[in-house]
């Protein structure tokens, strides 16, 4: 069955939907109007470009170009995380990037190598979109986790000092903040996983069905991707927090910024 194409005029019509959220973001003085419009514009341009690039990436299907592409995505994702959390870029960029790279490699190798098993693990058609989806979710999870972790450390500095001053190791003193970061970051994912299929039809599945795949194949991909996204996001959040700790705390366990 052929997928119905959306004409550019009708896309403009679709964009008009943005007026409603933008109005309320403006009315409640959230300061997010500019960010929203900029994000929507970036998303549109980026996706048009990616559509164009992907054509070529799939055509070339070269291991090194594919890897380079994913590294570029990691660089952008890491920088975006730090911009959104307003944490010091210089101090934490490598921590986030290494955490993303390691968790992405682990999950890609596991998922593509053992579950999907294409002829070549790093083949563009699987490696790039799946890495992109994983990275996008890692990004959101890390923004929430880092905001929560460093935010609560600032708010509840006395708790941290209280635990340290009464014999806690640095890891023990940070445990309540790690716990809170994990809860805040993963509660929404767990909730959305629990109702998936009932009140939410996920993007990948919908996309595959619209693209002509059979619903039974689309569902299997969706289930596996949800598990993959959950595992990779959690691994990346833990790695980011562990690695960033080494940069953000001095040898006395005091936060540097």
């Amino acid at each position: 069955m052929e997928t119905i194409n959306i004409g550019y005029g009708h896309m403009v019509l679709g964009f008009l939907l943005l007026i409603i959220p933008t109005y309320f973001l403006y009315r409640y003085r959230t300061g997010l109007v500019k960010d929203t419009l900029w994000a929507a514009l970036r998303m549109t341009v980026q996706l048009f470009f990616i559509g164009f690039y992907l054509e070529y990436l799939f055509l070339w299907d070269n291991l090194w170009i594919n890897l380079l592409w994913v590294v570029l995505m990691i660089v952008i994702a890491s920088s975006t995380v730090l911009k959104r959390t307003k944490l010091p870029q210089k101090m934490l960029f490598m921590a986030v990037a290494v955490a993303f790279l390691v968790s992405l490699l682990i999950i890609d190798l596991y998922f593509l190598g053992l579950v999907v098993r294409p002829e070549k693990i790093f083949t563009a058609r699987y490696f790039i979109p799946i890495s992109g989806m994983i990275l996008g979710n890692m990004l959101s999870a890390n923004v929430i986790a880092l905001n929560s972790f460093y935010g609560s450390l600032n708010r509840e500095r006395q708790l941290y000092l209280y635990l340290l001053g009464n014999g806690a190791t640095p890891g023990e003193a940070l445990a309540p903040f790690m716990r809170e970061a994990l809860i805040k970051s993963f509660n929404p994912t767990i909730a959305s996983m629990a109702v998936m299929g009932l009140i939410a039809l996920p993007g990948t599945m919908t996309g595959q069905i619209l693209g002509g795949s059979s619903p039974s194949v689309a569902i299997k991909y969706q289930i596996m991707l949800m598990i993959t996204i959950f595992a990779s996001s959690l691994i990346s959040v833990l790695l980011t927090l562990w690695i960033s700790r080494r940069k953000t705390f001095d040898r006395y366990g005091m936060k540097r910024f």
């Binding site: 509840e156 006395q158 708790l159 000092l161 209280y162 635990l163 340290l164 001053g165 009464n166 014999g167 806690a168 190791t169 023990e172 309540p176």
Partner: peptide, 28 residues
């Protein structure tokens, strides 16, 4: 720090009950 007990000036700890407050440092 293993040898110190530390009681800072006026501050609130995020423990709901007195029992939790008392037990917190003994979980270390």
């Amino acid at each position: 720090r293993r040898r110190t007990a530390w009681l800072p000036q006026e501050f609130t700890l995020p423990y709901d009950t007195i029992q939790e407050l008392i037990e917190a440092p003994f979980r270390l």
